[in-house]
Amino acid sequence: MNTTVTALRRLAAMAGAALLGVAAVPATAHATPEPKAPKDFVALSDVDPTIIQEMRYFTEHDFVGEPIDGYKKPMCILTRPAAKALHKAQAGLRKQGYSLKVYDCYRPQRAVDHFVRWAKDLDDQRMKAEFYPRVDKTRLFADGYIAEKSGHSRGSTVDLTVVKLPARPTRAYVPGEPLTPCYGPKKERFPDNSVDMGTGFDCFDTLAHTDDPRIKGVQRANRDLLRNALSGQGFVNLPEEWWHYTYKPELYPDTYFDFPVARRSLTGR
C-alpha cells in the first residue's frame, strides 16, 4: 500500500512540474514578430539630418489628442527616392535661408485605423476647437478628411512646411490647455516656428486648400515657396492640403504597409 501511495505521489509531482513548465513559457515566445520595412525605406535623418522633424503623431498635439498607434519613435521614414528628393529640395531652400520641417512621413496602417476609430466616436471632440472648429465630426468621412486608407502608408508621401533660418524652438503642447482655431491669425494659433501658411498643420478647413483664393500676400508666397521647392524635385501636392506632397513615381503605388515607425523597423533584415 505504501509503495502504491509513493508511486502516485511521484506521478502527481511530475504532472505538476510539467504544468509549471508550460506556464513558465514566456507569452512573447508565440507573439507574431512586427513586420519590417522593405530595404528601400530609409530614415530621413540618415539622408539629410538638416531637415527639421516635428513628428506630431508621436505626441498628444494632433486632432485625436493622443499619440497615434504605430508611432514608436518621433522619426521620419520614407522610401529612398522620396528622401533623396527632399534632400535636393532642402539644398535649394537652405540657399534662400529656409529649411523644410516634416510633420509626418510614412504612416502605418494601424495609425490610419486609429484615425478611423476616433472619427466614428462622435463623443470624443476634445481637439475640435483647434483642428476642426467649423466642421461637424459626422462629416469627416464624407468631406474627405478621414479615410480608411492613406497614401502615407505607401511610403512616398510627406506632410511638411517651411521654417525661416535660424529656426526658433517651438514650445511644447500642454495637454488640456485652451485651444484656438487652426485658421486664425498666426499670432493667435498654436505657436509654430514655420512661416505663415494661412492655417496650421492638419487644419480641417477649406482655408487649408492650397489654392484657396482667400490666401493672399505673404501667406500665398509662402505656400508657393514650398510648392516650387518640391514640385521641382518630383513631388505632387494634394490640392486640399497645402502641407501634403507625394513623390512620383511611387515605388509602392498599391501597397499599404504596417510596420511601426521605429529605427528597428529598418534594421535586422
Rank of each mutant, 00 (worst) to 15 (best):
Arg227Phe: 03
Thr206Asp: 15
Asp69Cys: 01
Pro185Arg: 07
Thr206Cys: 14
Tyr173Lys: 10
His87Ala: 12
Gly155Thr: 14
Gly65Leu: 04
Gly16Ile: 11
Pro74Ile: 10
Arg264Thr: 14
Trp242Gly: 08
Glu241Gln: 09
Pro185Leu: 11
Pro191Leu: 05
Val64Lys: 04
Pro133Leu: 03
Tyr57His: 14
Val162His: 02
Pro239Ala: 13
Tyr145Phe: 14
Val112Ile: 15
Val64Gly: 03
Ala229Tyr: 02
Phe235Ser: 01
Phe131Leu: 11
Ala24Ile: 15
Cys105Gly: 14
Asp258Ser: 09
Tyr183Cys: 06
Val158Pro: 02
Glu66Pro: 00
Phe204Met: 12
Lys128Gln: 15
Gln90Met: 09
Ser156Pro: 04
Gln96Cys: 05
Thr4Pro: 00
Gly232Pro: 03
Tyr145Asn: 05
Asp46Tyr: 00
Arg269Leu: 13
Leu207Glu: 10
Arg9Glu: 12
Ala15Tyr: 04
Leu20Gln: 05
Ala27Asp: 07
Ala24Cys: 07
Phe131Trp: 10
Phe190Ile: 02
Ala15Leu: 14
Tyr256Thr: 00
Gly97Arg: 09
His209Glu: 10
Asp121Ala: 11
Leu160Phe: 06
Met197Leu: 13
Met127Thr: 00
Phe201Met: 12
Pro49Glu: 03
Arg269Ser: 15
Gln125Tyr: 00
Cys76Thr: 08
Ala262Met: 02
Lys39Asp: 14
Thr32Met: 11
Pro49Trp: 01
Trp242His: 13
Pro181Ala: 14
Tyr106Asn: 13
Leu266Val: 15
Asp254Val: 03
Pro166Glu: 00
Thr28Phe: 13
Asp104Cys: 13
Arg263Asn: 05
Ile146Leu: 07
Thr6Cys: 08
